[in-house]
Design a protein around this nucleic acid. Structure first.
Lengths: 346, 346
DNA sequence: ACGCCTTCCGTAAACGTTTACGATACTAAG
DNA sequence: CTTAGTATCGTAAACGTTTACGGAAGGCGT
């Protein structure tokens, strides 16, 4: 079956009517519609997306831009695969399809996105791994492409929609928990303050400490990469701190693997000599002993929230989802383990 | 900038010439071409993909179909993200873009693919996780969509292109290695024989045993899922076998986590009381102690091979890549660890 | 008989490209 | 001067849809 034209002349109906019948328009006889639908099914006819897109100016495709750099591949779990499930469950209700757009590691994400946008291959975008300054956001605003960002940014003049993890809540909860167990010297391992996460998390950590009357000590902020190596390095630096901290908060659970390794080398037993709390559950670290206390979330739920927020910002769907708040702080749930189970005797 | 028409009238050149200039056709004055290119750059013009696709009947997009079921999310690493790097490095040379098409968990992969194909949103496909009987293959053949399958299948009448991992080589190498260390009772943990991997791997294992004059014992084939739980269950069953095997081959390294756990519970020390060899390196299991002996491969290289094989089967590129063999057995490299380091005294 | 409304359907334009074809101007060969 | 060839460009059709518009037919009230 070539196209709608062949289908029409087989049915001896005009092509306009066939199109209307297939698209559920009102002014078509119910019996005619049934005939058309039956014939379409029989011949396996599905509308050519290019023709439709050209005419309608819409592709019915939503893009999820992800990074496929070597570093990302090695230092992230299948986070996005987990998110797509929730995304699709919402998008499919509106006959929207999802494609993942992996930005090649040797291409600038901005240039890549620009290409994708200019080609008009997607109606809307979800971007992730936002930077504190992220040109992609300005680009999407200028091009009037609806989008939602997974992660805050100071670009775009607060004039876009985002969902971000509740770093404040997590940092506060982690500090509260450790303080309640008697810890006073609490270290934190985080990436550079240039990337948004590194800045926001440490800031929340500082506030949480001060709430308990504990003086913020910059020496306890260990700046390392969010990787296994970063964790090892964090352990290295931790062991060198005078008056060694009794607890550490990791900004990414994957770090715990390297951290544990360094600690064991030094004869320091995690969970007994040092309390460890991890952030953002990561499958690879789930099997460490003692088990990690960490914060987790439902990936599909996050995906569904992203989809709803995105749809709310698309004109065609905004009336359905208009009640959704624009920006959301996504809560995480505490998953207690043994790594911070002991208390400090005061 | 709307389209090529506006660009043309701004340059006071016909739209046809602009198109030819942009697409690098021969019959256009070099100076005119420079003007056009400069103007396009200035206004950020990029051809609308829908219009181009409609006219040319080609989208310049390659689809990589993946599964996003809950089971896949939990039991696989970011294998595909690793593969995309190599895919793109080849595809981008031909100005082809890659999109990942995650099949929703509640949709039949066959129906999903059918929709994608009918919509003509991709020129060619890479499908993965092929089944022994896989209707998708027949569909793609019938629709004359070029594709390459990651994994063999008995569908399609051997009339399609695939790349598959070298299960035979791996099984043989693993058995050889264990036998050389004196092992005679070697178990294997694999999924059901209905899925291709389960069948092929165990078959190769049997042949390798027989080569060494060791009788194949069905009792030593433990059929479990390729997951952590499957590994735990494998441990369970292993411990129940009379005259306990001294070694086990795991079809997926992730199983090792569960296996180790069960062994430790029973006081059996992996790497000392039981030799373990894993297949297909999996990040989550890399941190086990004792370290696992396993087989690994370069994901980007595999991606590049997939891309080249795919291009060879696309008419527009077949002359460039025609020398590529159609079907390939992808070799894996042995990565020795401590889990099979000990020898059996005979 | 007339006008009006409703239901259903056909006609044709439009979306943004690419490309086959022909036209023009110029050059070179005879 | 004629002819053929070359370089460059414009024209217009085509790709497969959707949809605004109008027309035909029938019903219904006056």
């Amino acid at each position: 079956m070539k196209g709608i034209r062949q289908l029409a002349e087989h049915l001896d109906i005009s092509i306009g009517t066939v199109s209307r019948a297939l698209n559920g328009k009102a002014d078509v006889n119910e019996e005619t519609r049934k005939r058309v639908l039956a014939a379409a099914e029989e011949f396996g006819y599905v509308a050519n997306q290019s023709g439709r897109s050209l005419r309608q100016g819409t592709t019915n495709v939503i893009g999820l831009m992800i990074e496929s750099s070597k570093e990302t591949v090695e230092n992230s779990d299948n986070f996005f695969l987990g998110v797509t499930g929730g995304l699709q469950s919402v998008l499919s209700r509106h006959k929207l399809d999802l494609v993942m757009l992996p930005c090649p590691s040797d291409e600038d994400p901005y240039e890549y996105l620009k290409r994708m946008v200019a080609r008009r291959v997607v109606d809307a975008m979800i971007i992730s791994a936002t930077q504190r300054i992220d040109k992609r956001i300005d680009l999407l605003i200028k091009a009037k492409i609806p989008f939602v960002a997974l992660g805050r940014s100071s670009s775009g003049g607060n004039n876009f929609t985002w969902i971000d993890l509740d770093f404040e809540g997590v940092a506060t909860c982690a500090v509260d928990r450790l303080v309640a167990k008697g810890h006073r010297r609490i270290a934190i391992a985080a990436p550079s303050g240039e990337i948004n996460l590194g800045y926001v998390f440490v800031d929340a950590y500082r506030k949480a400490l001060e709430k308990h009357g504990i003086k913020y000590d910059p020496k306890l902020v260990i700046r390392v990469k969010s990787s296994e190596q970063g964790g090892y390095q964090a352990g290295e630096e931790l062991l060198r701190i005078d008056n060694r901290p009794t607890a550490i908060i990791l900004i990414y659970e994957l770090m715990a693997i390297g951290l544990y390794r360094r600690l064991v080398e030094a004869g320091v037993v995690p969970g007994r000599d040092l309390a460890v709390i991890g952030f953002r559950e990561e499958p690879r670290a789930r099997f460490l002993q003692p088990t990690l206390t960490c914060f987790r979330m439902s990936l599909p739920d996050l995906g569904a929230a992203l989809a709803e927020t995105l749809l709310a910002s698309m004109p065609a769907y905004s009336e359905i989802y208009r009640n959704d708040v624009r920006n959301r702080i996504w809560p995480l749930e505490l998953a207690p383990g043994e790594s911070d189970a002991f208390s400090i005797r005061s």
